[in-house]
Amino acid sequence: METLVACLSGFLVATSIWLMLSGNLMRFLFGLLLLSNGVNLAILAAGRLTPGAPPLLGVKGELPADTMANALPQALLLTAIVIGFGLFAFALALTIQAYRTFGHLEVDRMRIAEPAEERE
C-alpha cells in the first residue's frame, strides 16, 4: 500500500513542479496545492499506512483489539494541511494583487524590483 502511495506522492510532486515552473502565477498556485498534497501523502506513507481503525479509544479509554492507525503523523498532517492552507491563501491574495499591479501574471515579466540592466 505504501508503494502505491509513494508513487502517487512522487507523481504529484512532479506535476506540481511542472506547473510551478510554467511562469504563470496562477499555475504556480495550482502547483502549490498539488505539492502540499503530494508531500502530505509522503508524510502519511512515511508514518505507515494501517488500513482500518482510526486512532480513537473506546469509551473508557480502552485500546481497540487490532492496531490503530498511527496517530502522530496524522496530527502532523493536520498541522501541515492547515499551515499549507494559510500559505496558499496568502499566495492567492498576492497573486490577485500582482495581477492588479502588473496587469498580467507572467512572473518573468515582473521586473520592477529587479529591472533589466541598462548600463551595459
Binding site: 504556480f28 502549490l32 500559505l87 496568502f90 499566495a91 498576492l94 500582482a98 512572473v107 520592477i112 524590483a113
Partner: peptide, 14 residues
Amino acid sequence: YAIDGAVKYVTLNL
C-alpha cells in the same frame, strides 16, 4: 515593487 519582490520571496520560500 514590494509586490514584485514579494512574489519572488514568497514563491521560493514556499
